Simulated assay, not measured.
Amino acid sequence: MPASEAVHIDARGMKCPWPALRAARAMRSADAVTVEADDPVAATELEALARQQGWGFVAQGSGLFALSRSS
């Protein structure tokens, strides 16, 4: 997979902390991840994970989030 392509995680229907755990696992081998999640706590959990790891975090819309490594 090209480095510019983000790994996509469909975490809809999963309760936290599963969306954040899936994102953390994917970021082990990827530079960017998008996460679809419908748990209301997901945004807070994903943002905290990104902050803790020094990654970028963007809420791209209702239930869509992007995490990326800083260059």
Rank of each mutant, 00 (worst) to 15 (best):
E36C: 04
A32N: 09
L67M: 11
V35T: 06
D39Y: 01
L67Q: 04
P2A: 14
A6T: 01
L46H: 07
T34H: 12
R51H: 13
M1T: 07
E45F: 06
A50I: 01
A30F: 09
A66M: 06
A66T: 01
L64F: 12
W18L: 13
A26S: 12
G54E: 02
G13D: 07
D39M: 05
P19Y: 05
P17I: 06
P19C: 11
E5W: 07
E47M: 13
S71T: 00
A11Q: 04
S68Y: 08
L46W: 08
A66S: 11
R22N: 05
V33P: 04
H8T: 03
E47H: 13
P19D: 09
R12F: 09
E45V: 02
V7Y: 15
T34R: 14
G13L: 04
A26M: 06
A42F: 01
R69V: 07
A43W: 07
A42T: 05
I9A: 10
A50Q: 01
Q60H: 03
E45M: 11
R69A: 08
D31L: 10
C16M: 05
G54I: 10
V58A: 15
R28T: 03
W18A: 10
A50F: 00
S62Q: 14
D31S: 14
A48S: 14
K15G: 05
V41P: 00
L67R: 05
V35R: 11
G63N: 13
E47I: 02
I9G: 11
R51Q: 15
A3I: 08
A26N: 06
A3S: 13
S71V: 00
S70P: 00
D10H: 10
S71D: 00
E5F: 08
A59M: 04
G63L: 12
L67I: 02
R69Y: 00
R51M: 08
Q53N: 08
R28G: 02
E45K: 11
A42W: 01
V35E: 13
S62A: 15
R51V: 11
P2M: 10
V33T: 02
